[in-house]
Amino acid sequence: MKSIPISLTCLLALAGCQVTPDRLPQAEPAPSAACYFPSADERALETSVDILTEWGFTLTSTDTSLGLISASRERELHGYYDPYDNAYGYGRGMSIFGGLGIGGGSSIGFGGVGFGGGIGQQPIEVERVSLFVNDAHIRISRDIRRFDHLGDLRESYSASNDDFCRRFQATFEQSLPADGRSL
């Protein structure tokens, strides 16, 4: 008996063991209930834009016919530790059996060892917020992404938490006229 049919049989048997996911991908953690609140204000889009720009966000896109606003802000992460940066005992910006080379941002290597990779660049955090304003409600979606000094995505998570949404809702309600109706 040849070994090829046996290995092919094993391969087919292992392929039959592949498992499909039991559910579709979901935002984890789930968005807070405070991220969906009522609003009867006619100027909810304009008020939301004013709040986001006041908080330091810049608009990335808007569609007033759909009632959608997307904004983002970024900040440098001084002293950010990337748990995956030195996973194999040597850094990404270090070459061991190199020659002369320049690469990846601003790394330089001579002879056997080169160091660098992102000198002068800071890790950054990008916070994105999307608001959907329909007839009587506002829905907030927020996520945070962290990039290392080379621009590689290192962390990403849903940040539609209770704190942010409650602060937004309180600021939104304070900016409404005293009688509760829009101007």
Results as ranks from 00 to 15, higher is better:
54 E>A: 13
68 L>F: 05
49 V>I: 15
4 I>D: 05
79 G>T: 01
90 Y>R: 14
74 E>T: 00
30 A>Y: 07
33 A>K: 07
49 V>M: 12
148 D>K: 00
159 A>D: 13
45 L>N: 10
50 D>R: 15
119 I>W: 04
2 K>L: 10
112 G>D: 10
25 P>T: 00
40 A>P: 03
142 R>I: 08
147 F>A: 12
125 E>N: 00
92 R>V: 14
143 D>C: 10
173 E>T: 04
109 G>D: 12
114 G>F: 06
118 G>D: 01
70 S>C: 13
122 Q>A: 14
66 L>K: 12
37 F>V: 06
49 V>K: 10
12 L>T: 06
12 L>V: 09
21 P>C: 03
55 W>N: 09
49 V>N: 02
181 R>I: 14
117 G>K: 00
172 F>D: 06
19 V>N: 07
31 P>D: 04
157 Y>C: 15
158 S>D: 11
56 G>P: 07
139 R>E: 13
1 M>A: 12
24 L>V: 10
50 D>M: 14
61 S>H: 10
151 G>K: 03
107 S>Y: 15
99 G>E: 02
109 G>R: 10
151 G>F: 02
130 S>M: 12
153 L>Q: 14
173 E>K: 08
68 L>V: 13
156 S>I: 06
78 H>K: 10
8 L>A: 11
85 D>Y: 08
130 S>W: 03
1 M>V: 13
133 V>N: 04
